[in-house]
Amino acid sequence: MENAIEVSGLTKSFDGHTAVNHLSLKVKKDTIFGLLGHNGAGKSTTIDCILGTQKPDTGEVTILGCDPAANRKQLFEKVGVQFQENAFQKGLKMKEICEITHSLYKHPMNWREQLQAFGLSHREKVKVTELSGGERQKLCILLAMMGQPEVIFLDELTTGLDPLARREVWRTLEKLKETGVTIFLTSHFMDEVENLCDELLVLKNGQTLVSGTVQEVLACTGTKNMDEAFIHLIEGDVQ
């Protein structure tokens, strides 16, 4: 199977502190890949380096066979991104940010349909800052989907969502995967990873602790579920 994302030997330091250390990973097309780690493990820096919003010190990155720093315009027609922060101009209404984002792409989706599917249609004229956490998160996913991308990056997508909203987001991601979208997500919810991800990688202080399928990680750590595996990995490494 072809790879949608390939990273090899990625290293990034800030002021002498190594945020990501020799990270390598491959994400197969049409799969969901999870990047795990505690807060500050280097997940967001990894995403930044993969997307080219930060320049890695060393290492190679390709997304859909392109160098993200060199082929920005063509690539981001096919790659959707949701960052941890909700980065919108203050005071913008949901409808306005949807229209603006819609105008960025050559083949955008019908956002009103998706808004309806998310149960957000009645909130169109509400300011983004006045939405609830769950509503805002769903909006961010919708915006990442806007260009009908082949690859989607989602940084901490369900943080701050109630269990019901999280299930809803999972269903959306599974549907996306069925239509042939590759998903790269970061998370610190282990049940999420267990349910969604085909493959995962656990990061600690910028180092790869383990990677593989959920079964492989469980077998390798001798644990029954990802919660245990994660704790085993993080604490085992300390001892």
């Binding site: 919003t53 920005r72 315009k73 981001f76 991104v81 980065a87 203050k90 960025l104 050559k106 260009g147």
Partner: peptide, 17 residues
């Protein structure tokens, strides 16, 4: 300044424009 601090500019960097 606000667009930079709120990462609005960064968000547009990962779009075709």
């Amino acid at each position: 300044s606000s667009y930079r601090e709120q990462k609005v500019l960064k968000r547009y960097k990962v779009t075709p424009i």
